[in-house]
Amino acid sequence: MIAAVPPPAAPPRYTKKELIADQPTWCPGCGDFSILSVYFKLMEKLQVPHEKIISVAGIGCSSRFPYFVNAHGAHFLHGRAVAFATGIALTRPDLHVFVFGGDGDAFSIGGNHLDHAARKNIKMTYLIMDNEVYGLTKKQTSPTSPLGFKSKTDPTGAIDQPINPMKKVIAAGATFVARTHSHLPNHVMEIMEKAMAHDGFSVIECLSECTEFYPGAFDAANPRKGGRFELVPANHDVTDELAAYRLACAPFPGYFGVFYQVQRPTKNALEAKLIADAQATTGGAGPRELLKQTFQRFQ
């Protein structure tokens, strides 16, 4: 975790203005814009030095994210961003990695990686912009498209049971599981800040409307469209896995907020312990010495 510095009296050293890179190529009205601007605000609020910001993405509309942030970024393969970010997170404890992707990346082609990063509790934040449709490729069915959704690959309506993102990540063992909605940027901000502060694998499903191919998908949870934004009940115990699972079972549009949060040692910490223990037994010998000792045994 990158420590937040106390609020400065002078103007902030790291401004969100400097973080703005290329004009995003998203369609007008896309929900992803609000997530991008919340990310800028969060980085400014926490005064994260810009060279320490690292945004990783897979493939999809939302995965264009790193190009729009003027900080270090990597645009990896479809579905593999979490695995790629694992390589960064484990070797660079000085950085907090943010992974951005869509429902295709997270729940379809990359579903396996999400499960394993969750169970290993690798320290990073994975923000999944769920629009329930494949937008970049112009309207095919996604793993979260509801039954009956008409797309170019399901012209008569989707027939396959969609994934329930919250259930999946809770079952996989993620230690921070939350849900938000891009139409409510203040809520997105609150959740992202909590996720970043969490020492472990934090997953956020952020409903993010595709105005082009699935307009109005999330109106039911948008108060400005007459919907109801139902927060996770105040008495919900975030450490109760079964209670979290019950929240996840609520019919669409469901609840918003932190469903589940527990502390479990991260892989980062466990690997660091393995290293400390191993180096204690070798007396901190350097690579030359270690190799010489090993090869003496091979004589």
Partner: peptide, 11 residues
């Protein structure tokens, strides 16, 4: 993918 990430991260 992890190896690509670690290489990108500097080593």
């Amino acid at each position: 993918s992890m190896a690509c990430g670690a290489s990108y991260a500097g080593r």
